[in-house]
Each structure stands twice: as structure tokens, then as C-alpha cells.
Design a protein around this nucleic acid. Structure first.
Length: 586
RNA sequence: GCGUCCGUAGCUCAACCGGAUAGAGCACUCGCCUUCUAAGCGAGCGGUUGCAGGUUCGAGUCCUGCCGGACGCGCCA
């Protein structure tokens, strides 16, 4: 099943070819001028340029071949050579009925399903999630759902930051505070299985230790040695580290669940670690490694580069694995275990150079084709001052606190609307949570991921305009109508396009497939968000213009109820792809 | 210094492969609840697309230069 745009593209392309023109120029798009047409094709202009001909004359040839198309109410040439098309009500009726009958609500699947790993979230041991994690989690989750919905086999991997220098820092910090810990002893143990520190301890110690390591070289060297010993397998350090990982992960999973984010894999950086010695040996054997200032590196610069890309550091002068080493080993690990066609890294744009280095090294080593590795970068979330977001006190806002702030705003608004009396306290809390999550996610996914945006809690939580709560509201309103219809014994019937609002709604529903395939191609969930918003808005117009349950004619009543039903289904489908769930009432 | 990205309405953001009259939301003004949730709908106001050149029938979009900003640039992740 294809959408109207694609069907018309086929027809217009055929007309171009039949006129002796390049068929690919027959691409049809939704009209820029809804007052003039439903769809348009600008191909005659491009064809004229290539052939040095008159665009209107070429358009005339093409249009002549389209005049008999029964699906078109009109085909006209406008301006310098735009081909404007208006679709008949009959064709729209047919399309509306198709979408209503389609379990996928008009969305197609990809022609060639792939095996895809989406690496996102990036939680770390000992670091509570903060607003900076919000984007990675929200965007990654949406991309994962989108790819899966389009038919790919997808694994979402949290890629847990449980390894590296930060672990050495924690060992030193904890050891300094509790020097009598059995874990610090050399030898094989046995060691306690209980963590000697709480998450709160780790969260308190880590920033202090990290700060000290920046200025205190002795301290830094101790942490580096601890890192090397941990990675070398010292049993006491390993046992202590396992405690860090456990207390951290428990808390992190709770937070992800609150945002309706689920990972298929919680592979830590430590899981890639066992592969490193063989990997290093192999890189060595292939002559890819070079000794430089005591470290072992892979040179990744290429001739065409505008600037020389620094080499990837594989083994530090201390003998430690680095960030890039782990990432490289992770690629190797995934290749062996999952053999993906594509790995997407949903990580802050600022790490673009790092991923370029790792991907090139992976390509050189033959671990993955460079096209199979993609960094899906996103911009930073800034405060109202345009600088990276901070609380009023200058600290980092924890994700947990952010969600609670949002929830509190949602509760207040729900109480205003009188929902407090209507719903049980459980249902009320559930609704407040859904509204809060929708507000946060839609505020983020409404923007293209690559651009930084201003994080403004009041604007986030405003329940008016282009916001998550607006979308939920439209969904809820439709559910309410459907409930009333069921009480009155009215059932949805065949969709009939007559009123302008019904035409518009059908065209909006038809645009779902394009929105999803574009979002998929560009890895850009904001296109889903935009579609959802446009659909909700178009429905709201329809709702105002076309009474449903009070319509005189029974067929029209059933048709409009059918429009309500299919709109709800597609809207909820789109929202699910954004990771947003709509409540029953609000 | 080198590199990447960005500069669009008072504010926050769009603009599909270079196409028609640069669009939304917020804010502001005005209308609309004896119809299904007004968290809504309709209408209005608001623009020299940072500046200057160039290519083109046509430039927010491509090229050059300048101004302004964010970010990155081997032993943190």
C-alpha cells in the first residue's frame, strides 16, 4: 500500500518519461499552496533548465498526459511551470478507508530490513542522570522504536559507562575515605559481595575526585594506577567495582523506566574489555599500531581531510585502555555477537571527532564498513541564558528532580481541570506522570536533534500550543467522543470525504508514511513530532467544523466517528514512536 | 591558530533536490462554550532571512569575503 504522494509520483514520472524527459523529475510533493492544490510537481522547471527549454511548454506536455487520470479533479500549470494537482473526493474517500482498515495506519515498512544496534542513553556508574542525559535517552528511544516499526531488527543498547579512568578515581576516593576496606588488599580474597558504599556515597565522592585529579598530579597518577590494576583483574578492586556497578544500575533503571525507556542490552564498557588484549595484538600484527610518546595509537588521518584528524589512542602510556579502545572493542563484540548491518550512536554532537576516529579505525581493522557506523549527534540543551543548562544555584539538575518538577506542574493543571475529584488517586498520579513525560519528550523531539535548544521549564510545561499536553489533549478528546458513541450505540462506519475539513484530515492522515520514511532516512524523530502535531491540529479543526455525534445523517455520523477513530489510532501510533503514551482522561 | 556547526518575526523554532505569497508556537489584539473535554477553534498584528558581493530565469538554501556566537582539537568520557 502506498500513499497518494507516491501514487501520483508514479503517474507523473510516467508522464515525464513519455514526454521524453527524465522520469525522476516527476517527484510529487505536498503542495506549498494548499489554497491552489493538494499536490505539486516542480520537475518541469528542472527539466527546462537541463534541456534549455521553456518550462511551461514542457509542463504542458506532461499535464496533457495526466488530464485523463480519474484520480485527479484538476491538473494545472501555475507560475513559471509548477504542476498543481487536486485529488478527487472519491480518491480521498478510498484512501481514507484504506488507512482506516490498515493495522499500520498507512505506514509502510522498509523494503530491506536490516539488523540495527542503537547505542544511546549512555548512563554512567556513580553519576546520577541529569538533564544532559535527557536528549540521548529520548532521541535514542524514539529512533529505536521508529526503526523497529519500519521493520528492522533492532537492539537498543544502554552502553553502560562502567569502565575506564573514572572507576580508578572511585576506587582511590573510596579507599582514601575508608582505608580499612578489605577490598583494598592484594590477593585473591575472598571479598564481601555487598557494596561498602551507597549510590549517594558515589555521587558525593565522584565530582570531588574528578575535580582533584585535574590539578593534583599525584592523585591523578594513583587513580591511573588503580585503573590499570582494575583492568588488569586485581580481585579486590574487581569486587569493589562490582558493587559500584550494582548500586548504580539499580537506580538508573528506575529512572529510565520512569521515562518509558527500555534497553534490550545493558552491555557495559567492561563487557568489551576482555576482547581488548587480542584486539590490540591483532592491530599490532596488522601493522596498524604505532608507538608515539609512550602510547600506542592508530593513525586515522586521510589525504582528503581539511584538517589532520588526531590518531586514535588505543593504549595509554600507563597501559590503560582508553575511551576509544573500548568503543573499538565494542564494535568488534557486536559484530561477533549480533552481526549488525548498522550501528547508530546517539551521542552528543561534540563527540563527532571521537567517533570519526573510532569509525575509521574500525574500518581500517576490518571490523565494520564505515557506512555501517553512524554517529547520530545532537545539540546541547541550554539554559535561558544560552549556556549549558544549570540550576539557579549553578549546579546540574538531576533528571529525577526534573521529572518531579514536571509532574508537579501537571498535577496542578489537572486539579484546575477538576480531574482530582473525578479520578482515583492512582489514576490521577498516572495521568500526571504521562502528561509530564509527554511535555518533556515533545519539547525535546519537537526540534531537530542537531540544533541546540533552550531548556525553559515554564515553556516546557505550558499546556498550550505546540506541546506534548496539547497532543494528549486531542487524543483524550477523541477517546471521550468514542466512549460517548459507544454509550449511544453509534459505531464507526465507512469514511466519506465531503466537507473541506474532511479533505484536509484525509490529506493529513495520508502524510504519515512520508513523515515516517523521512524521519527514518534522516534519523530525525522531529518529523514524527511535526506530523503528530499537524494531525492533531487538523483534527481539532475538523472537530470544530464537523459535529460528530449530533450529525443528522446516520452515514455521516458513522463516517465522522470513523475519522475520529482512525485519527486517534494514527496519533497514538505516532506518539508511541516518540515514546509518549496518552492517558484516557485529562 | 585549525576545523565543524549556527545566525530567519519581540521570544522559541520550521522551510522537502535552488522554486509560487519565508511558515508554526508563545506573547499581544479581536471574535467563538443552551454540540461531542475552550489544555480548543477562527481572525489580526508581527520579516531588508547577520552584513557585502557572486552564480541563476529564480537564493533563507549554492560560492567567496567579513561580522557575531556555540563547540571540538592524544593519554577524561
Amino acid at each position: 500500500m502506498t500513499d497518494l504522494k507516491r501514487r501520483l509520483t508514479e503517474a507523473v514520472s510516467a508522464a515525464f518519461t513519455a514526454s521524453g524527459l527524465d522520469g525522476t523529475l516527476g517527484r510529487v510533493t505536498v503542495s506549498d499552496r494548499p489554497d491552489l492544490a493538494d499536490f505539486q510537481c516542480n520537475g518541469a522547471l528542472a527539466a527546462a533548465k537541463a534541456a534549455k527549454a521553456n518550462p511551461r511548454a514542457l509542463a504542458e506536455q506532461v499535464v496533457a498526459r495526466l488530464r485523463d487520470d480519474p484520480r485527479l479533479a484538476s491538473v494545472e500549470i501555475a507560475g513559471p511551470g509548477f504542476i498543481n494537482m487536486v485529488v478527487t473526493d472519491a480518491e480521498l474517500t478510498l484512501r481514507a478507508q484504506e488507512i482506516a482498515a490498515d493495522p499500520r495506519l498507512g505506514a509502510s515498512v522498509t523494503e530491506t530490513p536490516r539488523r540495527v544496534v542503537v547505542d544511546y542513553g549512555g548512563p554512567n556508574v556513580a553519576k546520577p542522570m541529569h538533564v544532559g542525559h535527557l536528549r540521548a535517552s529520548i532521541i535514542g528511544e524514539s529512533i529505536k522504536r521508529l526503526f523497529r516499526f519500519r521493520g528492522d531488527q533492532v537492539w537498543g543498547d544502554a552502553h553502560f559507562g562502567d569502565w575506564g579512568f573514572q572507576m580508578g578515581l572511585l576506587i582511590v576516593a573510596v579507599g582514601d575515605e575508608q582505608p580499612d576496606l578489605p577490598f583494598l588488599a592484594e590477593g585473591d580474597g575472598p571479598f564481601p559481595t555487598e557494596s561498602p558504599v551507597s549510590l549517594a556515597d558515589l555521587e558525593r565522592l565522584y565530582p570531588i575526585a574528578a575535580g582533584r585529579a585535574k590539578t593534583d598530579t599525584d592523585y591523578r597518577d594513583r587513580a591511573r594506577r588503580a585503573t590499570a590494576l582494575l583492568q588488569g583483574g586485581r580481585p579486590g578492586y574487581r569486587a569493589l567495582w562490582r558493587g559500584f556497578v550494582e548500586v548504580s544500575r539499580t537506580a538508573l533503571e528506575r529512572e529510565f523506566n520512569a521515562l518509558d525507556i527500555q534497553f534490550d542490552l545493558w552491555n557495559g564498557e567492561s563487557d568489551a574489555d576482555p576482547l581488548i588484549p587480542d584486539m590490540v595484538a591483532e592491530l599490532e600484527a596488522r601493522g596498524l599500531l604505532e608507538l608515539d610518546q609512550g602510547a600506542r595509537i592508530v593513525r586515522v588521518a586521510q589525504p582528503g581531510d581539511k584538517r589532520e584528524l588526531p590518531p586514535l589512542l588505543v593504549v595509554s602510556s600507563e597501559g590503560s585502555a582508553m575511551y576509544g579502545t573500548t568503543d573499538l572493542a565494542t564494535i568488534l563484540d557486536r559484530r561477533r555477537r549480533l552481526d549488525p548491518d548498522l550501528m547508530l550512536y546517539v551521542v552528543d554532537q561534540r563527540q563527532a571527532d571521537h567517533f570519526a576516529q573510532v569509525f575509521r579505525a574500525a574500518s581500517l581493522a576490518g571490523y565494520a564498513a564505515e557506512e555501517a557506523l553512524e554517529h547520530i549527534g545532537f545539540g546541547t540543551m541550554n539554559g535561558p541564558d544560552g549556556k549549558p543548562f544549570k540550576t539557579r544555584e549553578g549546579g546540574v539538575l538531576k533528571l529525577h528532580d526534573l521529572i518531579e518538577m514536571a509532574r508537579e506542574k501537571a498535577r496542578a493543571r489537572l486539579r484546575e481541570a477538576g480531574l482530582g475529584a473525578e479520578l482515583s488517586s492512582e489514576a490521577f498520579e498516572d495521568t500526571a506522570h504521562k502528561v509530564a513525560v509527554a511535555a518533556l519528550k515533545f519539547a525535546d523531539l519537537g526540534n531537530f536533534r542537531g540544533t541546540s535548544y533552550v531548556f525553559d521549564i515554564d515553556r516546557f510545561m505550558s499546556f498550550e500550543g505546540k506541546t506534548g499536553p496539547y497532543l494528549l489533549y486531542q487524543s483524550v478528546r477523541i477517546k471521550s467522543v468514542l466512549r460517548k458513541a459507544a454509550e449511544q450505540g453509534v459505531a464507526p462506519g465507512p469514511l466519506l470525504v465531503g466537507e473541506p475539513a474532511e479533505r484536509e484530515l484525509t490529506l493529513a492522515l495520508d502524510a504519515y508514511d512520508t513523515a515516517l520514511s523521512e524521519a527514518y532516512a534522516k534519523r530525525a524523530p522531529n518529523l514524527i513530532a511535526e506530523h503528530a502535531y499537524r494531525l492533531a491540529q487538523t483534527f481539532s479543526k475538523f472537530y470544530a467544523a464537523c459535529p460528530i455525534l449530533v450529525a443528522e445523517d446516520a452515514n455521516i455520523r458513522a463516517s465522522r466517528l470513523g475519522f475520529a477513530k482512525v485519527t486517534l489510532d494514527q496519533l497514538d501510533s505516532a506518539l508511541r514512536l516518540l515514546g509518549i503514551e496518552s492517558p484516557d482522561r485529562m
